[in-house]
Design a protein around this nucleic acid. Structure first.
Lengths: 338, 338
DNA sequence: GCCATCTGTGCAATCGATTGTCCAAATATT
DNA sequence: AATATTTGGACAATCGATTGCACAGATGGC
């Protein structure tokens, strides 16, 4: 009565039986007289009984909740991934607790503590831009709490991972630019502590080498995802003595801002500079010129990661790897030939 | 030992005292001998004791978690609002459980049940596009669980609300278009069951009336936020015998897609048709022409809503209203004069 | 030296479920 | 008819905290 909800005890008293009998009647699987069971189920339904999740949590030491630790929800990749995660989780009866690191290592570590305190049954992680070590995740392994890394993964820990073929797709994107006749290809690379950034840069460099193009240091720009610097590095690139004839951007929004700056400087896209984005946002089709980009299947990565995690929670404990392939989507911003 | 974490009982046994004494020692506020307390605190620190949140949840009937019920995380307005919500919540020691309705009434109701089952201490709500009644929220009021509606609010329930001046800003936006010489202003209006959509449409109509412009039915398009229809209704509008000379779009992404369709049809922006967006996305500055829009302070709305909710959770039970003003940001897409 | 007061601590109930153990009654076996 | 087996359900412990109540021992007042 106190909390407004009725309990197993209330039902027991009303029927003059013990609460263990009520419990067993409700959880089908035990020897309760058919008539007794019927009376219990009937009354439970009538009183709209729902088991108190808090009591179950304590008793069973689990919460039917999974934690999600991501950089930012305003990052559309993660917003989409959350969609996939929630769908899979909710279908399985799990709730989702989301924490954002805001690309900060300290916040990430603190979020992790919160999730542990909340006793989530498992955690999905995509690390922050600042994260260059992984010892804070060790505690999850020590406590035998399932973890699945997705997208911004780490290779340092023996956990399940869902990732994309960063190397191959960056290679393919770069080769595409080369195939369009570009010879001086610049790249905006993310922080090199991140798995994705490292392999993308590598794919880019290997593609250049394969086609006997020089890898030039001043064609490689470091970015930390923070806005506000795009204009700066774009200017810097287009003012180089040997101006690049193509730029592989870090994501679509940065690419669009770059295009704006480039056009403001009287250069044509793609004739003077071709632009290649990342993420294949819907808006790519509507900017001018339409932006070539790389489709990442964020939703699928989220779903797959959640599915793996639930699998692990259910007891399947050996780490799994899942590759979700990305796809080059060619549009006008890189279309020079044919 | 079983769950790996040490408990108050472990400490009690190790010191040969009762667990109630340990509990009292840890929670400062009771008469425990200074020496005993010191020993307890010392050992607790050494063993890295943390109270089991699950036990506290059951005992105290609260979870230090707030629920957030929103349409979609891929909607940038809500992605930003989540940022504000989480910051305020985390600072106060609360976790955040997010549910997405995917703009579906049924899912919204089901999400609400999940949040209730999870015993969240309070709920922040922005209703789905389909939501045209509010009886499913009554259960929150009945159970005395604090609710704060934000952005997509309802006026039917006596709860706290954080909202923006939809009427005034739509009025202002429309007057701005009129001031630029536009006479045939179309609007893409959201579902009329939504508070925001209703008042925006009203503001638009009243502005027209104030300036003695006719309110024409075929200048008012209904949209349900779903993509894929933008091209259709844009074509429909520009093919009207009396083509509109301005369109008030439902949001920036739709506006940008409209601009694309309009330009593809050989019309100029803003000379032939002026475009006004909604949300003031960063990208507004980088499209061509730069898009005039309305800035909604999503982050602030989220923070404010969370702050109100925490206030209510802490006992301040009378409903509060908070107006967060929006702001018209004028750019090239509506710049005809001067 | 006797009773009152204060201090510090332990016991046990409580939150709301699950579950192992045990026992009484009913039924089956010989 | 005496014993063995099955059946149905009660009791109590448990999960890990908090907290009201009781009580022993120390201290103080007279």
């Amino acid at each position: 009565m106190s909390s407004g909800s009725i309990t197993i005890n209330d039902i027991a008293k009303m029927l003059g039986i013990s609460k263990s009998t009520v419990s067993r009647a409700l959880s089908e699987h035990s020897d309760v007289n058919a008539e007794t069971r019927h009376k219990v189920l009937e009354l439970a339904r009538k009183l709209n009984y729902t088991p108190n999740a808090l009591a179950l949590n304590l008793k069973q030491q689990r919460t039917n909740t999974i934690g999600v630790l991501i950089p930012e929800t305003v990052n559309r990749f993660f917003a989409k991934a959350i969609g996939g995660i929630q769908r899979v989780a909710n279908l399985a009866g799990y709730n989702v607790m989301i924490c954002q690191s805001d690309e900060s290592f300290v916040t990430e570590r603190s979020n992790l503590r919160s999730l542990l305190t909340a006793h989530v049954d498992g955690v999905l992680v995509s690390v922050s831009a600042e994260t260059d070590r992984t010892d804070h995740f060790q505690i999850l392994l020590d406590k035998n709490i399932p973890v699945v890394f997705f997208d911004r993964i780490t290779e340092e820990l023996n956990t399940s991972r869902v990732y994309t073929d960063n190397y191959e797709i960056a290679f393919e994107g770069t080769e595409h630019l080369i195939s369009q006749g570009c010879q001086r290809i610049a790249i905006v690379a993310g922080p090199q502590n991140l798995y994705n950034s490292r392999y993308r840069l590598k794919g880019y460099m290997d593609a250049l080498r394969k086609h006997n193009l020089p890898v030039k240091e001043n064609y490689i720009v470091q970015s930390h995802f923070r806005g506000g610097t795009v204009e700066d590095y774009t200017r810097q690139l287009i003012n180089l003595p040997q101006r690049p004839d193509a730029i592989f951007a870090i994501n679509d929004f940065a690419a669009i801002e770059m295009m704006h700056v480039i056009k403001k400087n009287g250069l044509r896209i793609p004739q003077d500079i071709a632009i290649l984005g990342f993420n294949n946002e819907t808006i790519c089709r509507f900017v001018e010129p339409a932006l070539t980009s790389i489709d990442m299947s964020a939703y699928d990565m989220g779903s797959e990661a959640a599915a793996l995690l639930l699998d692990q929670i259910k007891g399947n404990r050996d780490p799994q790897l899942r590759l979700i392939k990305s796809r080059l989507v060619i549009r006008e911003s890189t279309h020079l030939k044919g």
